[in-house]
Design a protein around this nucleic acid. Structure first.
Lengths: 337, 337
DNA sequence: GTGAAAGCGCTAACAT
DNA sequence: ATGTTAGCGCTTTCAC
């Protein structure tokens, strides 16, 4: 009864319009050589039947689907869902469609990529996650571009990578904190495998070393709120207590700030400096007023969009670094008392 | 040079394995009648060639793609990106893939749906957005189920809709606020076209009427932070000032709370009650400690997932209402002074 | 259990 | 400008 009845095909339209099936195809192909009169006939018939060209069939022939595979590594961080939103908006504007997966407990992206390749996606965008080199290699031989956003694969071969200037950011942040008079610095890492966290930390500790300051205490927050809460408790319970904590991202920094303020009763800025990375929307909310090193998402996304538009030959993009900037806010303002 | 070279086809595998192309197909079809020995031969050849069945071709034959089209109406609200994440996780577990679109300035979903239908998606999930009845009708005749999440279409025919119990929530919230001693109540609406906001408001005002209280002041926040900030300023500048504001969602409620606290210097709870809807993650953060009426997202998503699994015949789902609950927190706690 | 053959709905030569 | 003819890579009868 309510079985799926197959939608009208180009053949059906052709029959009704009294033309050949090829004519129908041409009518729906911009710039094909077809007389206006026949085109009209076709469109009329198509409308009458509710015809819609089957893109699956078209993809099969053309060998490309117009579909981009997108994998989001850490969907709990608002940053990456915002990135997804921007990416979808940009690609949709170019008539591309996106098959999207999210990784829950940072499970591996590989299985999803296998699936995406079965759908003959034209390209892959991997946000905040990596891939086994074997799969990357397969993508290359199959002509599927893979772009890594905000995370670089381990063996940094010649993959296409777009990130912020994390190391530099860590350095600038260290400089700012020291300048504000903070001396017992701590760092809250994300996950040790993440290149992002490693680069940010590297820049941070490197600067401290040049200034002859001790290496920071380090705790791992796993890029998650609960993890950050626990890491913050550990750091704030240290004696002597750190007087500033730099977190590997804003999402953890906000959790840390709340723990410092509500559990330890510390005055943010004066008694403890808190800073993060990314400049997510919430960082600028007055409740947090969080100093951060921005990751200019829109620029990252635009870069990715441009790469996906460029012809496949200019394939060697290497590592593109988008410059962020220090956003100094109240959470590291050490008002003289 | 770096032209896309077509991946190996079942034919290639067949040649290498020394079997027919049909055998290759059977080897990759679970439960097909094929001898273990041949299956082995096929798999060996497939691995050697790096063969991957082309799902595009399969979709073309089977008439269904295994793809679900998802459209997110208001991606700025963390609630709906969380919903997207949950939905992707659930459907991915069932081997379904999702083509996703987000609507930026609440532009219409129709154009995207047209595209999705061209890809012969098996079903459509519309989150926080609606569709022209004409398109819904087309979906039905083409056997594509459309499920509306957290928003019901205007002419409420027999669409499949899953929402929270918004009206009831508005009522319970009114009762709670009145019980706490708040008397000059205000409501911050989202967008007037949204059934969600209308139902929540309806329940709210209905209760006030039964108690003989005046109708609430109403301002529109457009479901967005900036809009909510401006609406909050207008409400808080009223004389006499409302002593409680119920917002149509948590995202706006948090903005309102911050304006009340930081711009008007009000003590939340005692001087002004603030409450929202949805129970997004941030609502429970100590900085906000926001009273809210929960929308049990996981249950909504599970319901949608189950619907998509059920055979197409049981198609008449009508309006499924998932019961939320009042989460009373500090933002409406009127401590006696 | 296996191969041959006929399509799924479309595009792209190739004719005319 | 239009129709005819091959396929794209697979699944699915249908014989054997």
């Amino acid at each position: 009864m309510s079985k799926r009845q197959s939608p009208p095909s180009a053949h059906d339209v052709a029959r009704v319009a009294g033309v050949s099936q090829a004519a129908v195809s041409r009518a729906f192909t911009p710039g094909a050589s077809i007389a206006d009169a026949t085109k009209e006939k076709v469109f009329r018939a198509a409308k009458a039947l509710g015809y819609r060209p089957n893109l699956i069939a078209r993809s099969l022939i053309k060998g490309e689907s117009g579909i981009i595979g997108v994998i989001i590594g850490n969907p709990r961080n608002p940053l990456f869902m915002t990135a997804l939103d921007m990416l979808l908006a940009r690609l949709s504007k170019e008539g591309k469609h996106c098959l999207v997966f999210t990784l829950d407990n940072e499970s591996t992206a590989d299985a999803h990529v296998e699936n995406l390749l079965k759908f003959r996606v034209d390209a892959l965008v991997l946000v905040a996650t990596t891939l086994t080199p074997k799969l990357v290699e397969q993508c290359r031989t199959e002509g599927v571009r893979a772009i890594f956003l905000s995370r670089k694969p381990r063996n940094g071969k010649d993959f296409t990578v777009v990130t912020g200037n994390n190391k530099d950011g860590g350095q600038q942040m260290a400089e700012h904190l020291v300048q504000q008079g903070y001396r017992r610095l701590a760092f809250m890492a994300g996950r040790t495998e993440s290149s992002t966290t490693r680069d940010r930390e590297a820049g941070f500790t490197a600067y401290l070393k040049t200034r002859g300051l001790p290496a920071p205490e380090i705790e791992i927050g796993h890029f998650q709120r609960q993890g950050a809460i626990e890491a913050a408790r550990r750091l704030l319970a240290l004696k002597p207590r750190p007087d500033a904590i730099l977190c590997a991202n804003d999402y953890m920094a906000i959790a840390t700030l709340e723990i410092a303020r509500f559990e330890f009763g510390l005055e943010i800025g004066r008694e403890i400096g808190i800073a993060g990375f990314d400049d997510i929307e919430q960082a600028s909310w007055p409740s947090f007023d969080l100093t951060t090193f921005s990751l200019p998402l829109q620029k990252l996304i635009d870069t990715v969009g441009d790469m996906l538009q460029s012809p496949r030959d200019l394939d060697r993009h290497g590592h593109t670094i988008i410059e962020g900037e220090l956003k100094i806010r109240g959470s590291t303002e050490r008002r003289k008392s």
